[in-house]
Design a binder for these strands. Structure first.
Lengths: 248, 248
DNA sequence: TAAAGTTGTCTATTGATATAGACAACTATA
DNA sequence: TATAGTTGTCTATATCAATAGACAACTTTA
């Protein structure tokens, strides 16, 4: 944790002082300033560094303890819990379960909801359909080792993939579900990435605290011969997951 | 702008109500709920929708006017200024200028600072050097049509790239600078993506308002035969830039 | 032309955040 | 064992964010 601009706190910014301090601490952990189980500087030192009251620092630490990032021990200090961000690969064959295989011991996808609806402009464009065409929308949450790591909406052409919601509910896997429709392989054609604050649904489904940031991907998957089969929008909690674009 | 969970506002979240409302408006614009020059619902309607006071909505709108996203006209309404996010491609050959060529009329990179320093653990790993090896660090800001769209730190092996700071200052281009060292082509070997709140330096260099979110990329570039030449960390304002991962 | 709808501004009050201080309780160190 | 260092808790005050109301000023509509 250096004495540079990154340590300054903005007042009246729309983000509370304690939240900014929490973010600075997360950032320092993410770039390796603190190893697993390392002790943070004492509260008094952090207060001095950020130019705020010790109680404000305690609010930040309290938030990070709730988020499972830190562990505070009375009389001893505040320590970094040994948890790094999961590294989720995005490449030619982006697969939720396979992607996190080496980092977690168990992964599955929970189907939260599904509906049949007319395709919006962006869904139609993504799937190569006419606007208003009937599509199936699956709302899912990806879990690894019992923790939510992604939340997604995926759209499929209703005519072609009738019943995919049942397949999804039974298999907990997009890949296995598509296999039931004769699709044994598919490729990631495009991915668009952005980031924003988590909304209320993100907070609930991803077990996040308010103020959290989510990475948002908009993706099109196609058959090997280039036919669009799936359009999806996924959200990953930025504090828990980083995206790794694989080598070419 | 739908009546779903995304419209709810979290109190005592560490993010002020007005900032959350500003974010919701940005989100609605980003997903196409409002076309260019479209009018937002009136202040009173937004206040009702979000369950806050009209003055709180006005704070949010004021922030977005300052950010150049909205235009308010007394007696007429509040309108979306016609500006979409830039789409920055990341692929085998990620180039700042070429990447934004079709969307902007002029691009260049400004060298903000440079230093010679011993490689940290992560820089050493990225460049395939021994920890502590002497490296050159360039701090740059990428600008397009007079607006900052990225801010980066890039590291190079000092022995091999002595003088690259001068080349950078003269050419405003990483590619042109590397060409002076006999590197006529290079590839993006890996990219790791995350997101966080902008820090004070980001706010200053990227002309952002407090509370803004930045997309952060950590990347390694290599020669065609796989030799690492550049390790970099870049930040893109999430409100202005999305990242497009090109098809493989 | 009058009425309705919209943004803009002012003053005042309430609720949330931040600061301040003091001291308890726990742990590490000399 | 005493001292120093650290986190935890309590009460109180100051500052900032949010609400509230009223009205001005501009634009659109009937």
């Amino acid at each position: 944790m250096t004495g540079q601009a990154a340590d300054t706190i903005e007042r009246r910014s729309g983000v509370s002082l304690w939240r900014q301090i929490a973010d600075r601490i997360l950032q320092a952990i993410a770039i390796g300033d603190f190893a697993e189980n390392a002790a943070l500087p004492p509260e008094v030192a952090l207060a001095e560094r950020y130019g705020v009251n010790r109680h404000t620092v305690r609010s930040a630490i309290s938030a990070l303890v709730q988020e499972g990032v830190l562990r505070a021990e009375q009389g001893r200090g505040t320590f970094v819990l040994s948890r790094k961000r999961l590294s989720y690969p995005i490449g030619a064959r982006t697969r939720f379960s396979a992607g996190l295989q080496g980092q977690t011991s168990e992964r599955h996808i929970v189907l939260l909801a599904f509906s049949v609806e007319p395709a919006s402009q962006r869904v139609a464009e993504g799937l190569g359909l006419a606007r208003g065409a009937e599509v199936i929308r699956l709302e899912t949450r990806g879990e690894a080792d019992g923790r939510p790591v992604s939340r997604a909406a995926a759209w499929f052409e209703a005519k072609r993939f009738a019943g995919i919601d049942k397949a999804m509910a039974q298999t907990g896997s997009i890949t296995a579900s598509l296999a039931r429709f004769g699709i044994d392989d598919y490729l990631r054609q495009s991915t668009v990435l952005s980031a924003r604050h988590a909304d209320a649904a993100d907070l609930a489904d991803l077990d996040l605290q308010p103020g959290a940031i989510v990475l948002v991907t908009m993706a099109v998957n196609v058959t090997p011969d280039g036919q669009p089969i799936q359009f999806s929008e996924s959200r990953f909690p930025a504090e828990r997951v980083e995206l790794k674009l694989s080598a070419l």
